[in-house]
């Protein structure tokens, strides 16, 4: 599931971008150190392979609906984590541009959700230990199934967190999680079967490919748990830094915080559990709060004296609607005008 721009707040978008770009930089550096030149075209073509494979629909057994694959795990198994991550990041970039899947700001989130988890977390910590030396078909199948499912669950959970932290959606945490996780369990099962089937198919047809690229690779080209921990500590620091930067530059960014909504007690679920935590983050992350910069409106029209909903008092007046229509008309006019003159 791709995250979308419109559901993001700038703070969350920027943080995830920072994290993903850092991971890209780190992987490029790591890869440069011990790359076999042969891997450069292989990565590119493998990326194109996953891209094309994702476009093939197949029928999910028993449902009649159709699915397609994500491919992060396949890449990790074939190319190893660093190269797989770069390939995945480039696939998502092309998709964001050409298919508008997600969007450019959500790209950071999507690289994170679909690239980092399978390549840097699930592959070294789950796939490798279960698959072992890669000689047993059953172990590989189990490893592929479990890893794909876990990677997708992590990704889906991240979508939930990113959306909630952004505060554009009213979905309560519980409902959202209950919506997302089971759907992705089903998707994960199917993709797990496909991934396992494909790895085993390749093993039978040309075992040397997998051996050359993954199993017999020296350990330093893989990832040690220590490196992962270091990476996550760095990430935590970066995230924290980004958040506190937003917090310190805009300490009173309250305008669109969830407090305005939840504080009224309209939503039972939101006042317990994660809500206070979210509220805290929201207050800290509000980016460029709107009212700080507005010129003081002295001649506020009468109808707005007692706004029923504090967050939306501005722009909901008749004047707002009127102004909006004029602006839209104006833009349309410009558009048609240009078209008209271009044709002549």
């Amino acid at each position: 599931m791709h995250m979308a721009d419109a559901l993001l707040s700038p703070a969350v978008g920027a943080t995830m971008w920072a994290g993903s770009v850092a991971a890209i930089g780190y992987s490029s550096k790591k890869l440069k150190e011990n790359i076999d030149n042969k891997t450069i075209p292989l990565m590119g073509v493998m990326g194109a392979f996953i891209f094309a494979a994702q476009m093939i629909n197949f029928t999910i057994p028993g449902t009649g609906s159709s699915g397609h694959i994500g491919g992060g795990m396949i890449l990790a198994v074939i190319l190893g984590p660093y190269a797989a991550f770069l390939a995945m990041a480039s696939i998502l970039t092309v998709q964001a541009l050409f298919f508008a899947d997600g969007g450019l700001l959500a790209l950071g989130c999507n690289i994170w959700n679909l690239g980092i988890y399978p390549c840097f977390l699930v592959y070294p910590l789950i796939y490798k230990p279960i698959a072992g030396d890669g000689k047993s078909t059953r172990r590989i199948s189990a490893a592929a199934m479990i890893s794909v499912i876990i990677a997708l669950q992590l990704g889906a959970f991240s979508v939930v967190m990113e959306t909630l932290l952004s505060g554009k959606s009213e979905l309560p945490f519980n409902t959202f999680v209950l919506l997302m996780q089971p759907i992705h369990l089903a998707i994960g099962l199917v993709e797990g079967i496909v991934t396992a089937g494909m790895i085993n198919y390749v093993r039978k047809a040309q075992p040397e490919i997998l051996e050359a690229n993954s199993f017999s690779r020296p350990l330093d080209a893989g990832i040690s748990i220590k490196n992962i921990l270091i990476a996550f500590v760095i990430l935590a620091v970066v995230t924290g830094g980004a958040l506190s930067w937003f917090a310190s530059t805009h300490p009173d960014g309250l305008e669109w915080s969830i407090e305005k909504v939840t504080g009224k007690g309209e939503l039972k679920e939101a006042t317990q559990g994660i809500a206070p935590f979210l509220k805290g983050i929201q207050e800290k992350t509000a980016f460029l709060p709107d009212y700080n910069f507005k010129p003081a409106d002295k001649e506020e029209p009468k109808g707005n004296e007692t706004p029923a909903w504090p967050g939306i008092e501005t722009g909901t007046s008749f004047a707002g609607i009127l102004g909006g229509s004029i602006v839209l008309m104006f833009i349309l006019l410009i558009g048609f005008g240009i078209r008209f003159f271009k044709k002549r």
Partner: peptide, 10 residues
Amino acid sequence: FYPATEILGR
């Protein structure tokens, strides 16, 4: 940073 639309409307 400026509610230009609303100002125009008003």
